[in-house]
Amino acid sequence: MATNLTPQTIDSLINQALAIEDEHAQEAGALGFMARAMVQATLPHRRVEGNEFERKNGSFTLTLQAPSKIGLPYGSIPRLLLAWVTTEAVKTKSRELELGGSMSSFMAELGLSPTGGANGSITRLKNQTRRLFSATITASYEDGEQVADMGYRLADKSVLWWHSKDPEQAGLWKSTVTLSEHFFHEVIDRPVPIDMRAIRALKQSPMALDIYTWLTYRASYLKQPTVIPWSSLALQFGSNYAQLRQFKAAFLDELKKVVLVYGCVQVEAIERGLIVKPSLTHIGKKSRA
């Protein structure tokens, strides 16, 4: 598979992949989880006009809605937040989660470095955190004979006592998010195991994060090689591309990054789609135990 990645990027991803292979995720304290609904259909990659967004995966449709004054979550940060939230909920079995003693300490858990300014990581984290936890989800299943719709907020409450100008400073009160009861049960009911080191390695690309979590999920149950048409992948991962060939080119570029980190995954791009073959999951049973 040809690649447009820079030598520095390739070296970095390979080094992180080797570190992952050297030590099981649980032994490295890197065992994480992602909610299945967010793996089957994904969040926007870029800013979306309006306050409604839809992704499709076969008969499954995920619709995301947000208050118009706040806006929809998009990009890598909401994905990092979802991985953290799901992992913490699975570990603690609690709906109320503490977001670190300070903004800086929480950013470190997400693999982010604090940077200031209008486009810095501090501003983006505060903005995307509010967007994500204000969002409402509708999950629909329709196969021609039966229809099922289910809607829920991601969080009942989020309280962020973060100091933007001094991210190291601890707040007088804890910053917390209380997951909605429905999302909490969605999160802890058969979550998708992921390696948080892979998430941090791919954090610069929201599509690469989506491809990684989806592939390790598919690998957990796939019994035979399966061809997924490019048109179906476009609906699931990038429906905002004007032409299918543009999506295909972007997808393959991001897939190269994922394959470098998740080396045991078996995939092959052909004219009509992507062949996904039975592969080892990125989190072995030993790590999940």
Rank of each mutant, 00 (worst) to 15 (best):
Ser12Arg: 15
Asn15Thr: 12
Ala17Asn: 11
Ala19Asn: 15
Ile20Phe: 02
Asp22Tyr: 08
Glu23Ile: 10
His24Gly: 15
Gly29Trp: 08
Gly29His: 04
Gly29Leu: 06
Ala30His: 13
Phe33Pro: 04
Phe33Leu: 04
Leu43Arg: 01
Arg46Ser: 06
Arg47Ala: 10
Gly50Arg: 03
Arg55Val: 02
Phe60Met: 06
Leu62Val: 04
Leu64Ser: 05
Gln65Met: 10
Ala66Gln: 02
Ile70Arg: 03
Tyr74Pro: 00
Ile77Met: 03
Leu81Ser: 07
Leu82Cys: 05
Glu88Ala: 14
Val90His: 00
Arg95Ala: 09
Arg95Pro: 05
Glu98Gln: 08
Glu98His: 07
Glu98Trp: 00
Leu99Asn: 12
Gly101Val: 13
Phe106Leu: 11
Ala108Lys: 12
Ala108Tyr: 11
Glu109Pro: 02
Glu109Trp: 00
Ser113Tyr: 14
Thr115Gly: 10
Ala118Cys: 13
Ser134Leu: 08
Ala135Ile: 09
Tyr152Gly: 05
Tyr152His: 11
Ser164Glu: 15
Glu168Cys: 00
Gln169Trp: 03
Leu172Val: 13
Trp173Ser: 09
Trp173Tyr: 12
Thr176Ile: 12
Thr178Tyr: 00
Ser180Tyr: 01
Ser180Glu: 01
Glu181Pro: 02
Glu181Gly: 11
Phe183Gly: 03
Phe183Pro: 05
Arg190Ser: 15
Ile194Glu: 06
Arg197Val: 07
Ala198Gln: 02
Asp210Pro: 01
Leu215Glu: 01
Leu215Ile: 03
Leu215Met: 03
Tyr217Arg: 01
Ala219Arg: 02
Ser220Pro: 04
Lys223Asp: 03
Val227Glu: 09
Pro229Thr: 08
Ser231Gly: 00
Ser232Cys: 00
Leu233Met: 05
Phe237Gln: 04
Ala249Ile: 14
Glu254Gln: 14
Lys257Phe: 02
Lys257Gly: 02
Val259Met: 15
Val259Ser: 15
Val259Gln: 15
Val261Trp: 10
Gly263Ala: 14
Gln266Pro: 02
Glu268Gln: 14
Ile275Phe: 02
Pro278Lys: 09
Pro278Cys: 04
Pro278Arg: 07
Leu280Gly: 12
Gly284Ser: 07
Gly284His: 04
Arg288Ala: 14
Arg288Ser: 12
Ala289Pro: 07
